[in-house]
Design a protein around this nucleic acid. Structure first.
Lengths: 128, 128
DNA sequence: CAGGATCCGTAACGATACTG
DNA sequence: CAGTATCGTTACGGATCCTG
């Protein structure tokens, strides 16, 4: 019954705060990023996504997919067959979102060395 | 004593998972985004940041700033005076990070209308 | 003023069991 | 296969008190 989003949703913050923050939280959420990245390549089925991403529980994957679908990023195509078959793909808006977070993710990887060196310097300065 | 990061840090995921994800989580964290956005403009003092951002507890602001400093995004300049005065500013790496998340945040705002309409359509289809 | 230490509620998350 | 429902744990985040 609850429509809890992927990311934290506290009433007061959402009421008074910036609404676009919720969009950002959904696309940058732990599994949201990975789902968008996976669907960037091609359409995936539910179990395919689970295997591709790895380490995600059924609950969290379903919740993430529902959130992304609700936001208009993911298209859900449920085939009325037995056994069930559901295909997930990106919408036009979703492709935009995927490109954005993909760019940010790539930047994170490019700068990872610099960050890790900064961390070593920071940690080293304290233990001295 | 603990070095808990701004975003969630589960041992198993960090051990096996993609390390650049931690960078992404820090810069896209709830308060991380707002700190980077504020410091993009100019140097801020601790209390200034609290007022500018609004709604952030001392604990979370300090924790966020420490995480961003450790990652090499924020420069901390503590003046040895009484009363204490500490200035926070962005490093070169931090300016890069700020630009990246700022771009993503701007995109979120640009597409906010489309997302909200998608949400209405989604919610309306269920209540029928 | 700038934070560190502590206590604590809440809710996000994962594992399991169950359903169409 | 593709989920939903429930439960238990964890740790995030806020409030408060305290120090240099």
């Amino acid at each position: 019954m609850s429509v809890s989003a992927t990311a934290s949703v506290r009433p007061d913050v959402n009421a008074t705060g910036c609404p676009s923050r919720l969009v950002l939280e959904h696309v940058t959420s732990r599994w949201g990023v990975l789902v968008l990245a996976a669907l960037r390549e091609r359409t995936h089925r539910f179990s395919e996504l689970r295997r591709t991403i790895g380490g995600v529980s059924e609950k969290m994957l379903a919740q993430t997919l529902r959130t992304l679908e609700r936001d208009g990023f993911v298209h859900r195509d449920a085939h009325p067959v037995i056994p069930p078959r559901v295909d997930y793909s990106l919408t036009g808006l979703g492709r935009e979102a995927a490109e954005q977070v993909w760019a940010l993710a790539r930047w994170s990887e490019r700068r990872l060395d610099a960050v890790q060196e900064a961390r070593r310097a920071y940690d080293g300065a304290r233990s001295s």
